[in-house]
Structures are given as structure tokens and as C-alpha cells.
């Protein structure tokens, strides 16, 4: 006979597994449909999962809205570009790079990890200052950080290429590569959420005073979550760059910031599953509407939405979801295997 508490814990442990399987299913479904645009859409969605899960590690656990995470994507993308672009290409496009980086010719995987690593380091340094603030002041400070990174990247021409897109990134990100990163992000996010630090952070989110009274140092736990979340946003940025093949500071600014926020909120900020479901729901909705805009043939008649209507319909749908499910699609719940499943094979699971 297993105790209720142990069953709950095992059920919680199944969440990342179920989510990963869900993503695997999504990739298989997309690939079996056969057209290349669908495979692209699957890869893009999974990159967004990496991004948004990373974003959720901080926002979901701490309850602080961050506007700054797109900047980590920007940093990750450019670090990966600096390390992997052919040296002769860098000499023409980015003449201001320091010698070591200009000569670097890294493999794409360590470069993506380095992208995440540098983003995490920047998060650690800036977070040390910003996270001393609470609530909306912290949010605004992260926004100011985003605007600073964007201004610097758009104008530091010899190193970042300025407003001109950096092109020539190796396009290696297939749906499988993106799936690997997305699963890694989900696993780490689940581990962090279940760790003492994750629990402490959520406790502080629910009741700041009580948590402080119980000896929780909110600042330290926030900083850890911020750094961890920046790592995956940085890697996500690197993936995005190597997915499109072209990077520009503008691609990591307000558009991405709000896309991430919208996905987390639509899915439900209260749970990891919410973050993943939010990405899937919005991405699939966008793809469906885009296809409707192209036109669907029924017999001899073609129905098509007017160009540009996708954005309007999606925005209206988002508002409706927020009105009828203000806590998001998942409303704070996690997907997990039912209790009788995990109780039955308890010995094998843990």
C-alpha cells in the first residue's frame, strides 16, 4: 500500500514524461502530413517550447512578469552566430569582433550551449541588481534591460552587424533537434520546480511575508530561477537563429516578448503543462488560420480569409479565452498519469 503523498509525488514525476510524449506525438503527426512547411512549423513550435518553458521557469515560479527574456534570446542567437559563422564571413560582416571569437569555428551544439551560458551569465549579473526590486518595478526594470540590449545590438555595428541582419548561420535545426532541446528544457524545468528552491520560490510567490518568516531568502531563489530560465531562452535564441538562418535584433524584441507572454498566459501561468499547452495551442491556431488565408478548396469553390485576418482573429480568440478561462487553458493543473497507473507500478517507477 503506497501512501497518498508518495502517489502524488510519482504522479508529479510523470508530468515531464507525458509532456515530452505529447511533443513527440506532435512531431510525428506534423511529419506524417508530409509537406515541408509543416515540418518547419513543427520545428518552430518546438523552439518556442524551449523558449517559453525557459521563460516559465522564472515567471511561473516567481510570479514576476519579465519583459526581458527576449533579450536573452538575442544574446544567445548572436553568441552562437559569433562562434559558428565561417571566419572569412565574420571578417567581412563583423570586423569588430575580438581575435579569439573572429577565429572561432565551433560545432553548432557547443555553440548553442555557449549561447545559453552567456545569456545565463548576463542574467546572473543583471538579475543581481534587478531582482532586488519587487513586483511591477522588477517587471519595468526587465523591460528597460530589454530596451537597452536592443539599442546596443542595433547600433554596435562592428560587432553585431547593427540593424543589418547577420546571415549565413548553418540551418541545422530540424524538428528532431528542436524536440531534443524542448524535452531537455521541460525536464530541467520540472526538476527545478520540484526542487527545494522551486518550492521556496512558489511559496514566496503565494505569500511573501509568510515565506520570509519561514526563513526563505526570496532573492536568492529568484536569481537562481532567473539564471536558469535565461539559459534556455539563450539556447532557444541560438536555435531560432539557426532555424531561420538570419538574425536581427528586431526579431528578439517586443514581438517575441509578447508572444512568449501570450503563450504562457493562454496556457495558464500556474503550471509547466500550461506553458507547453499554450505554445502548442497558439502555434497550431496560427498555422490553421494561415492555411485558411491561403484558401481551402471545397469542390470547385475556394474559401479564403482576407490577408492579414489571421492576426485579428487570433487576438480576438485570445481575449475570449482570457474572459472565459482567466487562469488559462490548463488553469494551473499539470498533465500527469492517473493515480491508479503510478500506484500500480510503484516499484518500477521510483
Amino acid at each position: 500500500m503506497t501512501s497518498q503523498h508518495r502517489i502524488r509525488r510519482r504522479m508529479t514525476a510523470t508530468t515531464p514524461v507525458v509532456l515530452s510524449l505529447l511533443l513527440l506525438l506532435f512531431v510525428l503527426a506534423a511529419l506524417s502530413l508530409g509537406d515541408r512547411a509543416m515540418a518547419r512549423m513543427a520545428a518552430e513550435t518546438l523552439i518556442r517550447v524551449t523558449f517559453v518553458v525557459g521563460f516559465w521557469v522564472f515567471v511561473g515560479n516567481s510570479g514576476v512578469v519579465s519583459f526581458g527574456h527576449a533579450a536573452f534570446g538575442c544574446i544567445g542567437a548572436y553568441v552562437s552566430a559569433w562562434l559558428t559563422l565561417r571566419p572569412e564571413m565574420k571578417a567581412t560582416l563583423l570586423p569588430g569582433l575580438p581575435e579569439v571569437i573572429a577565429a572561432a569555428d565551433w560545432h553548432v551544439l557547443p555553440a548553442a550551449v555557449a549561447g545559453g551560458g552567456v545569456a545565463a551569465l548576463v542574467a546572473l549579473l543583471t538579475g543581481a541588481a534587478i531582482l532586488r526590486l519587487s513586483g511591477i518595478a522588477a517587471s519595468i526594470a526587465t523591460f528597460a534591460f530589454l530596451a537597452m540590449v536592443n539599442t546596443i545590438w542595433a547600433n554596435w555595428t562592428s560587432v553585431t552587424g547593427g540593424t543589418s541582419s547577420v546571415v549565413g548561420l548553418e540551418r541545422y535545426v530540424t524538428p528532431w533537434v528542436a524536440l531534443g532541446w524542448a524535452v531537455a528544457a521541460i525536464l530541467v524545468a520540472a526538476l527545478h520546480a520540484a526542487s527545494a528552491s522551486g518550492l521556496a520560490l512558489r511559496a514566496a510567490r503565494e505569500d511573501e511575508v509568510a515565506a520570509a518568516a519561514s526563513g526563505i531568502d526570496r532573492y536568492r531563489h529568484r536569481l537562481l530561477a532567473y539564471t536558469l530560465s535565461a539559459f534556455f531562452c539563450g539556447s532557444g535564441g541560438a536555435l531560432m537563429g539557426h532555424f531561420i538562418g538570419v538574425i536581427n535584433p528586431d526579431g528578439f524584441y517586443l514581438g517575441l516578448t509578447f508572444l512568449m507572454l501570450a503563450m504562457v498566459v493562454i496556457g495558464g501561468v500556474g503550471s509547466l503543462s500550461g506553458a507547453v499547452v499554450g505554445v502548442l495551442a497558439l502555434s497550431i491556431a496560427v498555422e490553421g488560420l494561415v492555411r485558411l488565408e491561403k484558401g481551402i478548396s471545397v469542390g470547385a469553390v475556394t474559401f479564403a480569409l482576407p490577408p492579414g485576418s489571421q492576426e485579428i482573429i487570433l487576438a480576438v480568440a485570445m481575449i475570449l479565452i482570457l474572459i472565459f478561462r482567466p487562469a488559462g487553458l490548463m488553469a494551473g493543473r499539470e498533465v500527469m498519469l492517473p493515480a491508479r497507473w503510478v500506484a500500480g507500478r510503484a516499484s518500477r517507477e521510483t
Binding site: 512578469v65 509578447f258 507572454l261 501570450a262 498566459v265 493562454i266 492576426e311 485579428i312 487570433l314 487576438a315 480576438v316 485570445m318 481575449i319 482570457l322 474572459i323 482567466p326 487562469a327 488559462g328
Partner: peptide, 12 residues
């Protein structure tokens, strides 16, 4: 959620 709602309104 309110903020995201206002953002969606802006996009629309």
C-alpha cells in the same frame, strides 16, 4: 492576464 488581454486588443 489583463495585460495580455490589452495587448491582444492592441494587436487586433
Amino acid at each position: 492576464a489583463l495585460m495580455v488581454g490589452s495587448f491582444a486588443l492592441g494587436v487586433a
